[in-house]
């Protein structure tokens, strides 16, 4: 006799809870540890002698007089101009998100409402585009961009990111639009709207939750991008992620790994906040994509 939902099996619940706790440590501990370590000096966080130095901060106290130090952050943000990269990232992600959504809602709406075969083929093509590693496209950008003399600037990177994100944005918004009944656009059109008025006055107000969710993912794609921003931006225009990558070569050899650690932690903070406030939308977005397939 197996237990029914009314009579829970406590052993199983216990095992499940233990497993989940283990997973939480695996998933969360690295971030906790790195954040903690970013306030130490290198000799503590990367300790040759004893790993517990990172907890007690022996060398941090010896070098700075306190168990916690902001030296890493100072070095990265002020000495190495990480603030500029932060501003660039903000600019790039905000503009990319807005443009992606504008283009994506228009296109996704058309794809969801057209019953013709070519709409299907556009979606399939978008799927193939979505599958292509971004770096393969980047190798196609460089030569033409050098020739047109548009390499290295923020607008170029923004437009490229918008285009590269379009396949994903189209798919996601297309499936959100499919969940809005066609009757709504049709009654708007019978009531006197043009197609575009129906879209703007009636459909978009209903779509806001879907647009916000898709916007979150567009934001993540732009924020997390490495291939495009690393290859298409010149040094002074770099965003945070390529900046961190360039730290790896230069700063580590100078013994300032802690600059890289602190900038990594800094770049995690916005993502952390994002998950905190938009957990529901992110989960909903992942699920919506899956359900519509």
């Amino acid at each position: 006799m197996t237990s029914s939902p009314a009579r829970p099996n406590y052993t199983l619940t216990l095992i499940a809870t233990a497993f989940v706790l283990f997973w939480m440590v695996v998933a969360g501990f690295p971030f906790l540890w790195t954040t903690w370590g970013s306030f130490k000096v290198e000799a503590d966080f990367f300790s040759r002698a004893d790993w517990s130095n990172a907890l007690s901060g022996v060398n941090t106290i010896r070098q700075t007089g306190d168990a916690f130090t902001m030296d890493g952050y100072k070095g990265a943000w002020i000495l190495n101009d990480f603030w500029r990269a932060g501003l660039n990232t903000m600019l790039v992600t905000v503009v990319v998100t807005v443009l992606s959504l504008v283009l994506g809602t228009l296109g996704g709406y058309a794809l969801a409402r057209s019953g013709y075969r070519y709409a299907f083929w556009i979606l399939i093509l978008a799927l193939v585009f979505r599958a292509m590693p971004h770096i393969t496209l980047v190798s196609g950008y460089l030569v033409p961009f050098f020739q047109l003399n548009i390499w290295g600037t923020l607008p170029t990177a923004i437009i490229v990111l918008v285009a590269i994100n379009q396949p994903f944005t189209l798919w996601m918004l297309h499936s959100f639009f499919l969940s809005i009944p066609k009757d709504l656009d049709e009654s708007a059109m019978v009531d006197g709207c043009t197609r575009f008025q129906a879209f703007r006055e009636v459909i978009v107000p209903v779509m806001w939750p879907g647009i916000i969710t898709t916007g979150l993912f567009s934001f993540l794609l732009a924020y997390n991008d490495f291939a495009v921003t690393a290859m298409l931006l010149r040094q002074e225009n770099q965003t945070m992620i390529p900046k961190i990558a360039s730290f790896l070569g230069s700063i580590e050899s100078e013994g300032n790994v802690m600059f890289a650690v602190s900038s990594v932690v800094s770049a995690t903070v916005p993502l952390f906040i994002l998950v905190m406030f938009f957990q529901r939308q992110i989960v909903g977005g992942l699920t919506a994509g899956a359900v519509k397939g």
């Binding site: 049709e186 059109m189 709207c193 009636v202």
Partner: peptide, 18 residues
């Protein structure tokens, strides 16, 4: 276009603007 035909329509699922 539908808007230029000057008709009005009641839909099966009503098509109200939520």
């Amino acid at each position: 276009e539908p808007k230029d035909r000057d008709i009005s329509m009641v839909f099966q699922s009503y098509g109200l603007y939520p």
